[in-house]
Write a protein that binds this DNA or RNA. Structure first.
Length: 274
DNA sequence: CGGGTTACCTGACGGC
DNA sequence: TGCCGTCAGGTAACCC
């Protein structure tokens, strides 16, 4: 589900919910998500004060005095706030009771998400975080020059590689498709052969589409919700994602569907060229 | 190493 | 109604 704009929206929501409150009780109802829930989840978080909430790539990092809770939402994970202890629903896996009486619940039907606990000094070499590429909204780190160097010599489709979190983070299937449309690049173009001027457009398009989607609170296809349970609304602005068979908004050509690495990839055969 | 496929899990939807 | 196949915002583990 959630790509960078959705995770960033959740991060902002969690700041509202958590900062300045204490976790008075923590519970893990499910022993495993994608991976095992840490056995000391409840012990470590009970009594903790969350001092900061950061996002790196599609990961959320909740920092207490000593520990960091790493959370990835997978495809269908949500962190949702309730005014008071809610009735436990199917697929509610984790719960945090807060000092203001609110509860924060991690809900994830497919259980592709996961949480991990570590000490602050272990963050830098955490296996999930270590190999990540630059943040796309960091203009210094994610430049056309950087991207050209990262893609040099690579024959995989450009779409596959901009979704590769070691090349650039935060871009998933929706925003890859949207950014490639905006940049006029065919999703199957061989990554190492895309000319510098077009990489320049792609870098700009990635940044633009992500920034617009953050403003819109992300995109809700089905499961994604903010901490307040709201849907995002960027899905109303999709130019290509989920629109195969419909006319291109720019040139009216019928949008086509490709499958790359098992992922649906919709594009305009006229506006997007290899 | 790079590139490609499969697996993880549940639910929704379409076809029969 | 129900069964079966397919698909879904991600990523890690395999294979060659």
């Amino acid at each position: 589900m959630p790509e960078l704009p959705e995770v960033e929206t959740v991060r902002r929501g969690l700041e509202q919910v958590l900062l300045g409150r204490r976790v008075v009780a923590a519970q893990a109802w499910s022993p495993t998500l994608r991976f095992d829930v840490p056995a000391d989840f409840a012990r470590v978080l009970t009594g903790a004060e969350i001092q900061r909430i950061d996002r790196r790539a599609k990961y959320l990092l909740l920092t207490t005095g000593e520990h960091v809770l790493l959370s990835h939402l997978g495809m269908t994970g949500t962190w949702q706030r309730f005014d008071r202890a809610p009735q436990r629903r199917k697929h509610d896996h984790l719960g945090l009771a807060l000092s203001d009486g609110a509860w924060l619940i991690y809900h994830d039907p497919r259980r592709f998400g996961f949480v991990e606990l570590m000490r602050q000094d272990e963050v830098a070499d955490n296996a999930h975080l270590r190999a990540l590429g630059p943040e796309p909204l960091d203009a210094q780190a994610f430049s056309a020059d950087y991207l050209a160097q990262a893609l040099r010599g690579r024959s995989a489709p450009i779409k596959t590689l901009i979704m590769d979190q070691s090349v650039v983070v935060g871009v998933g299937n929706i925003y890859a498709a949207e950014a490639l449309f905006r940049a006029g690049i065919h999703p199957r173009a061989k990554a190492g052969r895309v000319r510098p001027a077009r990489l320049e457009r792609l870098v700009a398009a990635v940044r633009e589409v992500l920034a617009e989607a953050i403003v819109a609170g992300g995109s809700t296809i089905e499961d994604y919700r903010t901490t307040e349970g709201q849907s995002g609304y960027f899905q109303h602005n999709f130019a290509v994602y989920g629109r195969d068979g419909q006319p291109c908004a720019r040139c009216a050509t019928t949008l086509r569907l490709l499958r790359l690495g098992g992922r649906a990839s919709v594009y305009c055969p006229k506006c997007q060229r290899a």
